[in-house]
């Protein structure tokens, strides 16, 4: 049945009206803050007096800004050492879950549990567990090993946080990988088995190509989430000791609300936002399905 032009336009108007609340929400609570952040990054602004235009002063200063460069390095290290192992562990766990029989539901629930726990509770619990006089060190002592200063030395604290991030992030991505594995048609494997394919060959020619969109999704999500992470560092170490766990988001928070330098903090945010955008686009392009 053909629709008239006026009918299409009527549907269009209704469609627009139905979308309007969501569009307004996005415009007010997402687009406006992002644009305002760009605006403020060009101003000196301490929250307490009106913004003063300073052009690209804060962006020019970034190359010699010790705090920013150190935080950037800490953030990159954190993301690399979080994303890569989490990808591997979650992929393996997701695959292992497909092999389980009757207890699969219970294992899925158990593995997904860390993701549904409030981040603040998780961070506080790990902070207590990793205390020098805490249960983890008690366990090590019981095994005859020396206790470690997990959160109070610059050498250990970044690794302790990376480990906690593995524990927390793996659960979420495992479930995504599991969904991906379960979506691969069984007949692909049956056909491969008839052709004599086994083990590594099946993984390489059936599983990995079929999982490519899921892997792309997880890589992008885990990288973005890694770059945006805040709660563990803020609660467990507050960026210490000696600034060794001060990731970019924490530096942005302190620069804005403790040091009242909203312009500089916005410049950091713009760089972080641009970084996330560029890295995500590159990852999506590299992992795109070339046959689609």
């Amino acid at each position: 049945m053909m629709r008239t032009g006026s009918g299409r336009s009527r549907y269009g108007r209704w469609g627009f009206l139905f979308c309007l609340p969501a569009l307004l929400f996005i415009a007010i609570f997402q687009l406006y803050p992002v644009l305002f952040s760009y605006f403020i990054s060009l101003h000196e602004y301490d929250l307490l007096s009106p913004p003063r235009y300073v052009g690209f002063k804060y962006f020019r200063g970034l190359v010699t800004d010790r705090a920013f460069l150190r935080s950037l390095s800490i953030t990159i290290t954190y993301v690399v050492y979080t994303v890569v192992p989490v990808l591997g562990i979650a992929f393996w766990l997701g695959w292992a879950l497909t092999k389980l029989g009757r207890s699969r539901g219970a294992w899925r629930t158990l593995i997904f549990l860390p993701s549904v726990m409030p981040l603040v509770s998780v961070a506080l619990t790990w902070k207590l567990l990793l205390n020098v006089q805490g249960p983890v060190n008690d366990g090590l002592s019981a095994l005859g090993m020396a206790p470690a200063s997990w959160l109070t030395t610059s050498a250990m604290a970044p690794w302790a946080l990376i480990f906690v991030s593995w524990w927390h992030a793996t659960s979420y991505y495992t479930i995504i990988f599991l969904a991906g594995f379960l979506a691969i048609p069984r007949d692909h494997y049956e056909a491969a088995a008839l052709d004599g394919a086994r083990g590594w060959s099946v993984l390489r020619h059936i599983t990995l190509p079929s999982m490519k969109p899921t892997i792309a999704l997880v890589v992008v999500l885990s990288t973005v989430n890694g770059l945006k992470t805040f709660a563990f560092q803020q609660i467990m170490t507050d960026g210490g000791p000696a600034g060794s766990t001060q990731i970019l988001t924490l530096l942005i928070y302190k620069t804005s609300f403790s040091f009242l330098q909203m312009g500089k903090a916005s410049a950091y945010s713009v760089i972080l936002f641009t970084g996330i955008l560029v890295i995500s686009l590159i990852q999506i392009w590299l992992l795109r399905d070339r046959h689609a």
Binding site: S154, P241, A242, G243, K254, S258, F259
Partner: peptide, 21 residues
């Protein structure tokens, strides 16, 4: 006027030499 940042720099120094720097 930048006390918080200066205080943070000294705090970081203390935490560094507490670790052997």
């Amino acid at each position: 006027p930048t006390w918080s940042q200066e205080g943070t720099a000294i705090k970081n120094a203390i935490e560094q030499f507490a670790q052997g720097v």
